[in-house]
Simulated assay, not measured.
Amino acid sequence: MSAPAAPPLLLSDSQRATLEQLSRSQTAAHRQVQRARVLLLAADGVANTRISAEVGVTPVTVRAWRARFEEEGLAKLGQVRQGRGRKASISEEQVKAIVHDTLHTKPAGQTHWSCRTMAKHAGVSSATVQRIWHDLGIKPHRVDTFKVSNDSRFEEKLTDVVGLYLNPPAKAVVLCLDEKSQIQALDRTQASLPMIKGRGATMTHDYKRNGTTTLFAALNVLTGEVTGRCFDRHRHEEFLKFLKVIDAEVPTGQAIHVILDNYSTHKHADVQRWLTRHKRFHLHFIPTSSSWLNQVERWFRDLDVKAIRRGSFNSVPDLIAAIEDYLQANNEDPTPFVWTATAESILAKVTRARRKLTEVVNQ
Rank of each mutant, 00 (worst) to 15 (best):
V80K: 13
H141N: 08
H121M: 03
R153W: 03
R116P: 04
Q94S: 15
T128Q: 06
A67K: 13
T111D: 07
R50T: 12
D144S: 15
H112E: 04
I90H: 13
P107L: 00
E70S: 09
V148S: 07
P59K: 08
G78A: 08
R153I: 02
W65I: 02
L103S: 10
R81G: 13
V148E: 00
S152T: 12
K76A: 12
G85M: 01
L103K: 15
S52R: 03
I90R: 08
V95I: 11
V60G: 11
T128K: 09
A97H: 14
V62T: 06
V46Y: 08
R63I: 01
V129C: 01
G56K: 15
I90M: 11
I51T: 05
G83K: 09
T61I: 04
K147P: 08
T58C: 04
H104K: 12
P140W: 01
S89Q: 13
L39R: 07
A75S: 07
F146Y: 15
R68S: 14
N48S: 15
L136P: 03
G109Y: 03
G73F: 02
E71A: 14
A88L: 06
N48W: 01
A43T: 00
E92L: 10
V148N: 05
F69A: 05
R86F: 01
F146K: 13
S114W: 07
V60S: 10
K147F: 05
V46A: 12
W65R: 08
S152N: 12
M118P: 06
G56R: 10
H112L: 03
A75I: 02
I138E: 00
R142I: 03
S152M: 05
D144V: 15
K147H: 13
T61Q: 09
V124A: 11
F69P: 06
A75L: 03
Q82P: 10
G45A: 01
G45T: 06
A119M: 04
E71S: 10
E71F: 01
N48E: 06
S125R: 12
A88N: 11
R50E: 00
S125V: 07
L39G: 01
V124F: 06
R131L: 05
K96Q: 15
A47N: 10
I90C: 08
D135E: 09
G85N: 05
F69W: 01
L41P: 10
E155T: 12
A47Y: 00
M118C: 06
K139Q: 14
Q94P: 14
T102A: 03
G123C: 06
R131P: 10
G137E: 02
P59C: 09
Q130E: 07
A64Y: 02
K76M: 00
V95A: 13
L103I: 06
R131K: 05
R50D: 07
V148W: 01
G123K: 14
A43G: 05
G73P: 04
H100S: 12
A88D: 03
N150V: 09
V148A: 14
V95P: 13
D101K: 09
K76P: 08
V62P: 05
L39H: 01
E155R: 14
K76F: 08
R153L: 10
H100Y: 13
R131S: 12
L77V: 07
T117P: 06
V129K: 02
I51R: 09
E71T: 10
G137F: 02
E54K: 15
D101Y: 03
G83R: 07
T111G: 11
P140E: 00
A42F: 02
A67W: 02
I51D: 03
R84D: 04
V60R: 11
